[in-house]
Design a protein around this nucleic acid. Structure first.
Lengths: 218, 218
DNA sequence: TTCTATAGAGACCATATGGTCCACTTGAGG
DNA sequence: CCTCAAGTGGACCATATGGTCTCTATAGAA
């Protein structure tokens, strides 16, 4: 052994558009089903049926269920981060934070609080079951928090936030309030707790504003 | 139909000490296993083995797995509420809140952030799967929050908290921070996020103190 | 058009898991 | 001591579920 890596072109399997589309369809179906039923309560047969594919497709694209789940963690993480980048990368003021809050609350209220956060629920279910998934989720949360803390840094640099504000801690606190809010809202089937939680976190951030604004929190 | 309820003594099955002990053993084992593996990932055989019982015991005390899970929801709820009553029913000052925070953080740090809150994880897994369980969990959260808000009410009545403090909202916010903290800590395998989250909530409550104390947050 | 590798359908398999059943044991009341 | 219901052990069953395999269809390169 030693040179087969050089000689063999790694058996680079060609992948067609059609194949890619199928893979996408599977992930999309898994995403939908596992959000409402949870990962462990969703069977491969459910996914197969919902994605209009066959067993062989599932196993052509994913080695086993665990791999599908891990791919879903990436997929969902990418979705959430893309959405959040849209709402956070231009964040420069407290009112921007309020708009961000309102968007999350409104989206969740459409489900009456149900289902919670796609990342949070996976984290809960997988953290003690799949170390690799846990690690990816943890990184995704970190990236998400960074989007927030970057915005807070911009606010601090521009003088909107006081110097003694700690953007990293504020971001972690806000994320915890968001996740806890999702969880309580899901248990209550009511967005209200999520609103209260986010408002608390925003009030706390507000207390670091240089000149306390009179903007309504909602 | 109409009088069988009056006539029949409801087939009141005698239950012996021995039987009760077995039931307890089953619940205790289910509690332990399902906390670390999750409900759906724990099999009845796991529970049977861990509780040193047999299949017939399981089905003598619980109609099916769902009933066992519902019993566990009650069991765990009672445990948590008993523990929390101990820490909260004498709550009369901000420093009491800090002690409460410290106890939770220390307990969780023993697991390096793992496992999260027994109620929160069940809520996440069961809310979209078992309406009855969800409803019980939601009530348990409400009772838990009430323990907190009662304490805050006492603080407000005694003049420690300002009149414009809203104990119910503060309690919900604190609970969300706690649950979100558990979740992030579990994903990170590190208590730190939980500490930050709780500290944020406590800072927020502190901002309602009549005379801002200089007590350290930890 | 022909050839070949990928895409796809779905029968099939092994096992895990929830759930049933029956025979045996135990213990408290008569 | 006898009796009988509660308690217990564990074999057994049906099915769900993850996973494999084989045969066919399709599409792009030559």
């Amino acid at each position: 052994m030693g040179d087969e890596q050089v000689v063999a072109p790694a058996k680079q399997r060609r992948i067609s558009q059609r194949g890619l589309a199928t893979r996408e369809r599977i992930l999309e179906a898994a995403n939908r089903l596992m959000l409402v039923r949870g990962v462990n309560a969703t069977t491969l047969d459910d996914v197969r049926e919902a994605s209009q594919t066959s067993k062989s497709q599932l196993y052509q694209h994913f080695a086993d269920k665990q791999e599908l789940v891990r791919a879903l963690v990436k997929y969902r993480g990418a979705l959430v981060l893309a959405r959040e980048r849209g709402g956070l990368e231009r964040l420069r003021s407290f009112s921007g934070l309020v708009r961000w809050r309102n968007a999350l609350v409104q989206a969740n209220s459409l489900n009456n609080g149900r289902y919670g956060c796609g990342l949070g629920s996976m984290a809960n279910e997988l953290s003690d079951q799949d170390e690799q998934a846990r690690s990816m989720l943890s990184e995704t949360f970190a990236t998400w928090e960074k989007l927030i803390s970057d915005g807070l840094h911009r606010m601090r640099d521009s003088g909107a936030l006081r110097q003694d504000a700690d953007p990293e801690k504020l971001a972690t606190g806000l994320m915890a309030a968001l996740q806890g809010g999702y969880l309580l809202a899901n248990a209550a089937h009511d967005v209200a707790p999520m609103e209260v939680a986010l408002d608390m976190a925003l009030e706390h951030i507000k207390s670091f504003l240089v000149e306390p604004s009179n903007e309504p929190t909602r």
